[in-house]
Write a protein that binds this DNA or RNA. Sequence first.
DNA 1: GCACAAGTTCAGTTGACACTTACGCAAGCC
DNA 2: GGCTTGCGTAAGTGTCAACTGAACTTGTGC
Lengths: 107, 107
Amino acid sequence: MDAALKALAEPRRREILRLVWSAELPATAIADHFSEVTRSAVSQHLGVLKAAGLVSERRDGTRRLYRADRSEMRQLRRFLDDYWTSGLERLRDAAEAAQREKDAADG
Amino acid sequence: MDAALKALAEPRRREILRLVWSAELPATAIADHFSEVTRSAVSQHLGVLKAAGLVSERRDGTRRLYRADRSEMRQLRRFLDDYWTSGLERLRDAAEAAQREKDAADG
DNA sequence: GCACAAGTTCAGTTGACACTTACGCAAGCC
DNA sequence: GGCTTGCGTAAGTGTCAACTGAACTTGTGC
């Protein structure tokens, strides 16, 4: 999840992900979309996205076809929804914080 | 939005955000939660979160109280939902999905 | 006014990362 | 077997970001 979030922090990778969101594309077609960056850079971005599970790769002859893994995106969304308010753990933190506040005020 | 995503890419900042999600806390209380990092580092993280609009600051005497700005988080979530499939493309995807549903049902 | 407490900010260091160029490697095609 | 196409990997570089320690700011209580 950490990897997915870090991968999405890079604008170029978000753009790539959008390109392969609804269409499976070979690496070259993706790279052609970015005139200001080399093919190599795009390939490395694809590697990061793949490592984060946000993209899947399929080989076809010499080509490699990429497409977005939407289920991973769903998981990410869900993580973002849940992380901040995760039940007992959050309550515990709040209680601890309140106690420190009180201690500081008293002491 | 780019700033918010980048801010969330850092685990420590996610933790901070969770701390101030449901409780307003002074900077020191937040810093006390991170034993492996100095107060200064936490202050800088708070600056990033604030710049990204994910956190709001209120002054009370010498203290500064922080709390999460949930509306910004909602916007982020919405952005994540919409960015990949925007406008016509999203409609097309929906149509395709409906067709696949139909094909699956028929087949 | 002085001391202290709460926090930020400045200067400098270190590590991560996006990038480029060059090279390597596999799969068709002649 | 050579040639070309499609693409990843290696090595090196510049930039940025997270961190530390020291200095600074601002408010409070005496």
